[in-house]
Each structure stands twice: as structure tokens, then as C-alpha cells.
Amino acid sequence: MKTYGTEPGKPEPVQVGISELVVSEGDDTLKSYGLGSCLAVALYDPDSGIGGLAHVMLPDGDAAENSDVKPGKYADTAIRALLRRMVENGASYTDVEAKIAGGSDMFEFESFGDGVGQRNVDAATAELEKLGVPVIDQDVGGKHGRTVEFTPGSGKLIVRTANGEHGVTEL
């Protein structure tokens, strides 16, 4: 369940849960907790400081019935919805850059085929390419979970892992 701290003066990060997307600007931080095979897609316009974070669960929204109700659930529809909302808020489409993190494949179950995480990474990469949004940096794959914090104003995406090996990465 989402909880908020009570430390005075310091704004708490906005939680972006599975299938959700949030658009914001400036020093606000957007946080997605415990990504395994889910993928965090962070888009931002460096000039206006407007950006957004999506916590994507599945690759293909165009093939799903409810993607209009839950665009944030699917990589393709989430990216388009983020872009649209950012532009509505004043971002300039052609300046938008992307960073992605997540898409691990921690289990080698037969039913998972080539890997549920990799499918999300591939779908997001393909959609971004189609829309002409460059992927500036990424931290994807592997067999470990990640927690990400994104600040649209700086475009900084901080990726934390639970184990010491990978630690904290700044994208």
C-alpha cells in the first residue's frame, strides 16, 4: 500500500504504481517501487523541465481491449499517453528524451518463453524509435529488482537495486 512520510518541509516523491503514469515538472520526484519485469519509462523535455514516468506492465496495448481505460499498463500506449500529456503541459515534442529501467527476467520458467521482462524492453524501445524519441540511457535486464526515482526538471533517473552488487546507478 502507498504510504507517505511526515518529514516536514521535504516534498515526498509521488508514487507511480503498476499500470500508472504521472506527468510533472521541475523538482518533483516520481517514484516506482520494486520493478521486476515491469519497466519504468521516463520521458522529459530538458528545456521546459516537463516530464513523466510510466510503470509499464505489458508490451502491447494496441492488441488489448482496455488500453484506452488503462494506457499506463502497456508500453506502447503508456509512451504515447505520456508524450501527449507532456505536450499538453507545454513540452516540445521534438526535444523529448527517454530513459528506461527495469525489465528483469528473474525466473527461467518454461511458461515465460523468451522472458516477460525482455518483451517489455523490446516493446518500449520499438515504440520510442517509431515516435523518434531518443533513448539517452538505460539500465535494463538482469535478474534483479529495481526501484527508480525520476526528477523531470533535471532528467535524472536514479536506479536502486536491493543487492550490493548493483547498488545505485544514476542515469
Binding site: G34, G36, S37, M57, L58, M106, V116, N120, H144, G145
Partner: peptide, 20 residues
């Protein structure tokens, strides 16, 4: 399969697979 990781990250691959 042994797991030692953030709780939510362990569960999400499964819900993704079922989510199809």
C-alpha cells in the same frame, strides 16, 4: 528458483505473465 530481492519485484514477473 531462489529469490532474494525486493518483494514487489519478485511478484511482478508472475502477474505480467498472467496479465497476457
Amino acid at each position: 528458483e531462489f529469490i532474494h530481492d525486493i518483494g514487489a519485484a519478485v511478484v511482478d514477473p508472475i502477474i505480467i505473465q498472467l496479465g497476457e
